[in-house]
Design a protein around this nucleic acid. Structure first.
Length: 139
RNA sequence: GAAGCAGAUCACCUUAUCGCUUUCCGCAAUAGCGGGAGGAGGAAAGUCCGGACACCUUAGUGCGGUAUAGCGGGUAACACCCGUCGUCCUGCGAAAGCAGGAUAGGACAAGUGCAACAGAAAGUAUGUACAGGUUAAGCUGUAGUGAAACCAGGUAAACUCUAUGCGGUGAAACGUCAUGUAAAUCAGCGUCUGAGGGCUGCACGCCCGAGCUGAAGGGUAGGCGGUUAGAGCUUCCGGGUAACCGGGAGUCGAGAUAAAUGAUAAGGGUCUUUCCUUUGGGAAGAAACAGAAUCCGGCUUAUGGCCUGCUUUUUUU
RNA sequence: GGCCUCGUAGUUCAAUGGAUAGAAUAGAAGUUUCCUAAACUUUAGAUGCAAGUUCGAUUCUUGCCGAGGCUA
């Protein structure tokens, strides 16, 4: 079962390959129209339960407002930090899940955070998301 | 030592772990996995000029529009660069001149316009006072106003004229493959008596030519090429005052697309301030401006060090 | 990525290169009123920034800064 094997690896590893990135413009616009959101300052998660291609559990993207960070260097910096902490913490979501989601992380703050701060808020946000999901499942 | 100006140069480094991305090799039916090699800048920025390249009839004529403006050279080209002349400013000097800097620097003797306040008068120029002068006369000089007033006056980053250049649109160009619907409905115009189109503001000319426009509605918004070896970089020789040119040798240095080049840890180097100090150093902190998006040549703006030269000033010998 | 447009009082707009940049509205103070509103009087407030052309710049030119739009 090679497919299962790769599945298992993706579950456990901290990799963040291309097909797990949210890229489709149509998906993103649907995400904003139909999806719901959670906020743990300075992060906001916009999410939507939706079938995805390529048998992926989650497609995630990150974004930063151009109004908050004027320079491209700073925007790239924040996006890289967000990707990094999502990469570290995404295995929490993948555990015993059958639903597929589209994620978009939005940075709301006005200052560039440290990696440690970013990790902390990402952890809190994902815990909040998991709690909400389980609650919904139980109903 | 400090300040200013000009020029040149670098843009923290090493190792480990976890990741992203391009490419090559191997394995794998695909997905993917393993290994090797590579992965931001001097401004990548602003998009201000000039090209390459692509398409639009190889792009015609006139008007319009627009850009440039001493002279000579460089260049693929330029609003760029080099040299030089003139003008202006600063410093030195008795002066001649010297040094540095700035310079959109054609034409008002083609025409039109404009000139507040002051002043007699700002354009068909010529009044007052004094002096001179005449047959007579603003005929001559001085005074006062103003940025400008014996003069074919000033002003063209005023219209304009002259000379020269410019066809348009920009990689969301363009080519190609795939997916999918509706060759459907209603209204108007037209089918050689020519609708409409040919991505130029207008007119003419030329070419294509059976569909075109509107309403309401439906579908795709994905992949590949273009896309990185080039007016390239390094070095040597020769020519030229210089910008730059010619020749030889060597070399390959990103290619993403909701957009890669990152995170953590340790060590080292640099700088600054504070504290301790046995003057050897130790501890803490900081590290600028900024991120390729078709590619080049410039310009402009942002910005941290280090080096060289010149000028000014201070201190010591 | 490319192509355009616009910056004047707190706000909405004027001003031919020429005395002190004008008007409406909002603000402040006062008059009136038992109080408020309305009305009247007075008052403060601006050319996005920096150079250049000019005797003189909101206006002309250039460079920055900011805001907005269009583009399969």
């Amino acid at each position: 079962m090679p497919r299962f094997n790769s599945y298992f690896c993706a579950d456990m590893s901290q990799r963040f390959p291309r097909h797990e990135k949210l890229k489709s413009a149509t998906l993103i616009s649907r995400l904003f129209e139909e999806g719901s959101h959670l906020t743990v300052f300075p992060l906001r998660l916009q999410y939507l339960e939706i079938p995805l291609p390529n048998e992926v559990l989650v497609q995630a993207g990150v974004t930063v407002s151009k109004r908050k960070f004027k320079n491209a260097v700073d925007r790239n910096r924040v996006k890289r930090l967000m990707r990094e902490s999502y990469r570290k913490h995404k295995s929490l979501i993948f555990n015993n899940s059958e639903q597929t989601f589209a994620f978009l992380f939005i940075y709301l703050g006005k200052e560039i955070p440290s990696q440690a701060d970013m990790d902390r808020s990402m952890r809190l946000l994902i815990d909040k998301f998991l709690a909400k999901r389980d609650e919904k499942d139980n109903e």
